[in-house]
């Protein structure tokens, strides 16, 4: 094969990447564009620029209720999930014990179960223990779904911590609790912020489990799902854009905090 042929192949491959990205981003961009389009039934050519869909959702009390619920759920479950994720990541970092593999499986398995199955299982379980339809159900369910992500983010940060610095704190007279407070937590802090944002974003987007267990406490995605079941309604685009901007902000903050790793990233092991 000669260079000419290679160039042609490279060109084809690179255009192909472009096409694939076009496909992936078409729905995202369409939704953005049509959220400002005046026509009810989206088509080419576009109608005129309008903010009326944003006005509609702004004036819709259901949307505000959903926003409120979503925020309560996302904040609570992200705090819980990050707490549990931190405990788990630290345990994995620091200790070895019997059945540790089972322990880690318990921590990391939830994302591999289809959401619809989790949804049914949670629905049945919550109605059994009597919290069905309350906002707590959604919070608990989202905590289960989000904890593995929090654990992964914090575990990666702990990986960058030189094991000696915790021992150095003990060596300088700190109890294990004090070393946790003055050394481990300060070191992991960026990852904790990162995990909070990431899990908040995951919770903000989850609809299957929330739909099953939320009862009347609809979150935004559940509201979207219900609007979808009705007619074609461009206010979905407006809500979608709003959600997109919120989650992207969270993700970018998460990413920024995760990249703070300039400090003490070397990881020495001992003889």
């Amino acid at each position: 094969m000669n260079i000419q042929g290679n160039r042609l192949i490279n060109f084809i491959l690179k255009s192909y990447i472009g096409l694939v990205f076009l496909f992936i981003f078409t729905p995202i961009i369409t939704s953005l564009v049509f959220s400002f389009n005046s026509d009810r039934f989206a088509s080419i050519p576009l109608g005129s620029f309008t903010l009326k869909w944003y006005e509609t959702i702004y004036n819709d009390p259901d949307v505000w209720d959903a926003v409120r619920t979503s925020i309560i759920v996302a904040v609570s479950s992200s705090v819980l999930a990050t707490g549990i994720g931190f405990c788990t990541a630290y345990t994995d970092f620091r200790y070895t014990f019997k059945f540790k593999n089972a322990y880690l499986a318990l921590a990391l398995l939830p994302p591999t179960i289809p959401l619809i199955i989790m949804a049914l299982a949670m629905l049945a379980w919550f109605s059994k223990i009597g919290t069905s339809g309350s906002i707590f159900s959604v919070i608990i369910a989202h905590t289960v779904l989000c904890a593995p992500f929090a654990m992964a983010v914090i575990r990666l940060r702990l990986q960058q911590m030189n094991r000696d610095i915790e021992a150095a704190a003990w060596n300088l007279g700190a109890t294990e609790w004090a070393a946790m407070r003055y050394v481990v937590i300060p070191f992991v802090k960026p990852a904790i912020v990162s995990a909070l944002c990431l899990t908040m974003a995951v919770s903000f987007d989850e609809f299957a489990v929330a739909w099953f267990v939320s009862g009347l406490n609809k979150t935004i995605p559940v509201l979207i799902l219900e609007i979808l079941q009705g007619n074609v309604d461009p206010q979905i685009n407006a809500i979608g854009t709003f959600v997109f901007i919120t989650t992207m902000t969270l993700v970018i903050i998460a990413q920024l905090f995760f990249m703070i790793r300039s400090q003490g990233s070397e990881n020495n092991t001992n003889e």
């Binding site: 000696d164 610095i165 704190a169 300088l172 007279g173 700190a174 109890t175 300060p186 003490g264």
Partner: peptide
């Protein structure tokens, strides 16, 4: 932490999130 046997580590194990002053003060703070 109950012993008076401070150590200088091969990796130094300085606290990366504290400045020099705070690093040195650590043993007094605890």
């Amino acid at each position: 932490h109950e012993r008076e046997t401070p150590m200088v580590w091969q990796s130094l194990a300085l606290f990366p999130f504290l400045n020099v002053q705070k690093n040195v003060e650590f043993g007094l703070k605890t």
